[in-house]
Design a protein around this nucleic acid. Structure first.
Lengths: 338, 338
DNA sequence: ACTGATTTTGGGAGCGCTCCCAAAGACAGG
DNA sequence: CCTGTCTTTGGGAGCGCTCCCAAAATCAGT
């Protein structure tokens, strides 16, 4: 069907090897033949067969993106499209293709792992949303399979790209403290995930540094999703909070729903700060004060790091913390108090 | 590094060919040798090299998912994670891997197309969010490259999975008519996309069938995204509408924001109906009345169809319309009037 | 025991590429 | 003109698999 190297060689009046050299940009090809070959290649629309290439080079030029915990609800978060876009566009930019693996529980992980480790499907992988002791990570480490994490690394010595969750959370809570709120609660993320714990730590840091006792009674454990924000807020209302820090914007939406239902006003009765700065957050009423994290960039930087890793050009372990930003809108009350 | 067929053959005391037959489930292998070989395969954790396989079979067992118009904002819609999940889980189920290509404008399309058509990267592709005269589609058709569309097919004879956009939109608008609204407006999607036009047609159908003139002055052209919902609503307020049908929930969120800003109440001053039934829609205040479409299933069914197509087991052209459902919540006023 | 049909097994060829090595050509310098 | 060096080119081997064909083994039926 499609032409192969030999065909192109014949058409250009040279040998297979020469065509290969031209295509791969190797030296030691005279300018004349190079041009002649390139012309035929272009005219015939020739592309080297990736499978044949892979068979000999042991490289696929395909990257993977894995989310072990892409449970239906978790993955519905607009966080992921942004992340995927960052990864995809960077991969394309470097002429890599992108393969996707959405895990839906541990049983599936083992299958992923097997399909991935068999040399020849992908060269390396970007991993997001890992939980503690994810067996996938252990496997990759053991097999020395190249990977980069997005999020806090669950152990030492791994390559990771992240934001400083703890610091960002502290900034968010300090903002509430400075505004004068006295009984600040928190709705946490899914505490099996390191990022959720880091945000909780940041909340405690802020209270401690302000000389307040961080009573655990004002902490509601959530799971990053809307319903858990709703439930968490319902719970916290019994604790008489006057402000709540939510570990995700999605939960803040749920919290807002609970407050509306109780006919409580935001921020007058309860102030709210979220985390993520999703597109909808600015459109809520009131607009949500939140921590903006550069989701697309997280994906981009991770992908770039992975590609460098594959090229042996990454000093490992590699760690990057991308900056976050407190975005002040209506839900924290700062705009009213001015 | 990793073992190959020959190694396994040696360990099992048989020939390469026999191992190949066992692995591929071919007949004419005695039960005894089959068991012996399987044992060695399992013990050694052997997987056949996909590149080598592809080289001879011309099949990759990889599927592609393409969104030519994955512009940063468009793709941020929670619609896509759901779609991708449906595709991904079905692909996994049939033991296919999934490759992702997010287009960001036509310039990139050509590159995609070239990377894809070179035999050996993927076997077929699921395409979503095409615009009219998408050159990608033309290329695929010309090359007889297997693909299945999600959404309305831009021309005859293509395989597609979709919902009945026109009918669903009519149902939504008829609902508003029955509730007694007199000046029903619409905020449309991006009219370059066939689905957006179909929804507009449905809106007109409903008005016409109710004997009303569908004045175009009550139609605001949007692009499916939040800001265009906001803008659209601002515009429609000058037309004195008492109800608005939005072609996406995301735009309904924008519309709601505009109404809040004008201190108008939903549904008392202006009733609202959306389209999609995103997770957040139930959490808005008031909760959004909307058309629910089975997004995950759309992805699943398309993937299944594609796999059948690859197996030559699909009667083409193949068309499926999945059912939609009017979900009545607070924003249309139906719950108040009871 | 011998023949022929049938089941089971082994080995060669080849998929399309890269890489290595050797051959050929170009070019100085004596 | 010949030799040695350097650049450019060609062809063989081999990556790991599947598929085809032929050889070997098994099994009936005389």
């Amino acid at each position: 069907m499609s032409k192969n190297l030999e065909d192109i060689a014949r058409l250009a009046g040279v040998s297979r090897s020469t065509v290969s050299r031209v295509i791969n940009g190797h030296p030691h090809v005279s300018e004349l033949t190079r041009r002649r070959v390139m012309e035929v290649v272009k005219r015939e629309g020739f592309f080297p067969n990736p499978a044949a290439r892979t068979l000999v080079t042991q490289r696929t030029r395909v990257l993977g993106f894995i989310t072990p915990q892409a449970l239906p609800d978790v993955f519905a978060d607009p966080y992921f499209p942004a992340l995927i876009q960052g990864i995809s566009s960077t991969a394309n930019q470097y002429d890599y293709a992108l393969m996707l693996w959405l895990g839906e529980g541990t049983e599936e992980e083992e299958r992923f792992y097997h399909r991935i480790r068999q040399t020849g499907l992908i060269d390396g992988v970007v991993v997001a949303s890992v939980v503690d002791d994810d067996p996938l990570i252990a496997h990759f480490v053991e097999d020395r399979f190249p990977f980069v994490l997005i999020g806090p690394p669950p152990r030492e010595g791994l390559n990771s790209i992240d934001i400083d969750n703890r610091h960002a959370a502290r900034v968010a809570v300090e903002h509430l403290i400075h505004l004068g709120y006295q009984r600040i609660g928190m709705i946490t993320g899914w505490l099996k995930m390191p990022s959720a714990r880091a945000r909780l730590d940041g909340y405690r840091d802020a209270l401690r540094m302000a000389g307040r006792s961080a009573s655990d009674s004002r902490i509601a454990e959530g799971n990053f999703l809307e319903p858990s924000g709703y439930m968490g807020m319902k719970m916290l209302l019994h604790q008489d909070v006057d402000a709540v820090f939510c570990a995700s914007d999605t939960m803040a939406v749920g919290a807002m729903r609970a407050l509306h239902e109780e006919r409580l006003r935001v921020p007058d009765d309860v102030a709210l700060v979220g985390f993520d700065d999703l597109p909808i957050s600015a459109a809520l009423s009131p607009p949500l004060t939140t921590i903006r994290q550069p989701i697309r960039r997280l994906g981009s930087v991770a992908t770039e790091a992975l590609i460098n890793l594959l090229d042996g050009a990454l000093a490992t372990p590699y760690h990057v913390l991308l900056p976050t930003e407190l975005v002040i809108r209506g839900s924290c009350g700062a705009l009213l108090k001015r």
